[in-house]
């Protein structure tokens, strides 16, 4: 197992290195650079200023040289400076990551708590009223546009009823845990509604497939209680594909939810990375995306380990 983990860690490092190169290259090849953007918004800036600033920011150097410079710095823990936030990259990322863990973690947890039992229940009695009801909720979640749902929730709970704040991470100047939770309710609700539908559909499909297996028929023939058949024999098997989906979802959690963050003015990773890309903030965009990649790799590794726990027939050895 240890050798397997070491091998996966080395693979992850190689993927990260490759990704950093590809992302840096893609960002660098995008039209315009930070100084071009600055110049387009400032009619007073002169050609001499543009040339001087490009040299100062190192933008007059070849892309590969700039990448090499960034890589050398990052190996020493210096991930560079965010152009659009005017502070070192890690100083911007840290608070945004905390916000994202709150928002995405809570909605992920709630979505799992709702979707997994709902999916199982729908599969146990397919075509029944419960199945129809759960499917209705699932399809609603799948088909609602996130920007529309977000605005709708704000209009209902903030404008009409006045119960909840319309956006932000917390009250200006502090407010404590209760205040933070109050600000989280609407975005978490929106995200939970949006992600639950997909998970319900996956769980339901996997459970229906699992309940058709021969060993389930055998278990029923042995006279096992229906609940035991479902929980002990069907659910663990059905969970293997669901865990794959959950692992991918978990990895993408940390790249944030752009639309919901924008609607609720929530300072999370999604908006941060998006703004960094649009604002030609190479360092911030690169580190943000690499971080999301790392978490996707780690969550997939965790999923692989969970497979073995769910199904003892699966064993790991280095390839």
């Amino acid at each position: 197992m240890l050798r397997y983990l070491v091998q996966r860690a080395l693979e992850a490092l190689a993927v990260l290195l490759l990704m950093s190169f590809v992302i840096y290259l893609l960002l660098g090849l995008m039209p315009g650079d930070p100084i071009d953007l600055m110049a387009s918004g400032d009619p007073r800036i002169t050609p001499a200023d543009i040339a001087r600033l490009k040299a100062l920011y190192g933008l007059d150097r070849p892309l590969l040289e700039r990448y090499g410079h960034w890589l050398a710095g990052s190996l020493t823990g210096d991930f560079g400076y965010s152009r659009i936030h005017a502070v070192p990259v890690l100083e911007v990322l840290a608070p945004r990551l905390v916000n994202t863990v709150w928002l995405m973690g809570l909605s992920f947890l709630l979505a799992c708590l709702i979707a997994l039992p709902a999916g199982v229940l729908a599969a146990v009695r397919p075509q029944g009223w419960l199945d129809y009801g759960i499917n209705l909720v699932a399809f609603a979640g799948l088909s609602l546009p996130s920007f529309w749902l977000g605005i709708l929730l704000i209009l209902l709970f903030s404008v009409e009823l006045g119960w909840l704040p319309a956006g932000g991470v917390g009250t200006v100047g502090g407010g404590g845990l209760g205040d933070r939770i109050l600000h989280l309710i609407l975005p978490v609700l929106a995200l939970t509604l949006l992600t639950t539908g997909r998970l319900i559909r996956f769980t339901r499909g996997a459970m229906i497939e699992a309940l058709r297996q021969n060993h389930i028929r055998t278990a029923r023939a042995k006279g096992l209680a229906p609940a035991a058949v479902v929980l002990r024999h069907a659910v663990p098997n059905a969970m293997i594909p669901v865990v794959t989906v959950l692992a991918l979802d978990f990895g993408s959690l940390f790249s944030g939810a752009l639309v919901i963050e924008t609607i609720f003015a929530y300072q999370g990773m999604g908006k941060l990375i998006y703004d960094a890309i649009l604002g030609n903030d190479y360092n911030l965009a690169l580190v943000g995306l690499l971080f999301a990649t790392l978490l996707t790799l780690l969550s997939n590794l965790a999923a692989d380990l969970v497979y073995a726990w769910l199904d003892p027939r699966i064993a790991y050895a280095p390839a």
Partner: peptide, 20 residues
């Protein structure tokens, strides 16, 4: 004086109406 940044203009309107 607090200057709050809300980039989405629909959300900006909603915040104005809700007193945010």
């Amino acid at each position: 004086i607090v200057v709050r940044v809300i980039e989405n203009t629909a959300a900006l309107e909603a915040n104005l109406l809700s007193g945010g």
